[in-house]
């Protein structure tokens, strides 16, 4: 495949790489030691490793393919001229919604501490999304106007 040749050109494995490899893997070893050693306690190495690897797998096996499928399905549906701006707005909306999801669901609320997570986050998310799409509409309008001239 062409891509593997492309990938090769961007990596350099001259001597600095081997120095960095020794230093970098020493740091990795230090981190693993800290987790397994449990001096500070309560690191739960197996639970930690599960989440560490799990997030990697969930991203590669679920999130990335879903994003690609969403792109394949949604892309052609959009009018050609609106497509770039809508795609951009979808990207911004998606990351904001992803960040806000646990807040909106109220997972972290503590009845005894009302100043923790004190806002109406559903409302907050709606406001941010509205601002994002308002900006997107302005950009589209400007582009259409420019294309007419």
């Amino acid at each position: 495949m062409k891509q593997s040749a492309d990938a090769g050109e961007t990596s350099s494995h001259a001597w600095p790489f081997w120095v960095a490899l020794a230093g970098g893997w020493s740091m990795i070893g230090f981190g693993i030691h800290g987790i397994v050693d449990r001096v500070g306690g309560r690191t739960n190495p197996f639970g930690l490793a599960r989440l560490f690897i799990g997030l990697n797998v969930i991203h590669d096996a679920v999130v990335a393919p879903l994003v690609i499928v969403a792109g394949v399905v949604l892309g052609p549906v959009l009018p050609r001229r609106a497509r770039p701006v809508v795609q951009g707005a979808v990207i911004v909306s998606a990351v904001v919604a992803l960040y806000a999801y646990p807040l909106v669901r109220g997972y972290g609320r503590i009845a005894e501490s009302p100043s923790v997570l004190p806002l109406n986050y559903g409302h907050g998310l709606a406001v941010v999304l509205a601002a994002i799409w308002a900006v997107a509409l302005v950009i589209m309008a400007v582009r259409w106007a420019a294309a007419r001239d």
Partner: peptide, 13 residues
Amino acid sequence: PFFFPPAHHWAAW
């Protein structure tokens, strides 16, 4: 399923 500060710290290394 772990205490956040040491987990976050060691994972950063």
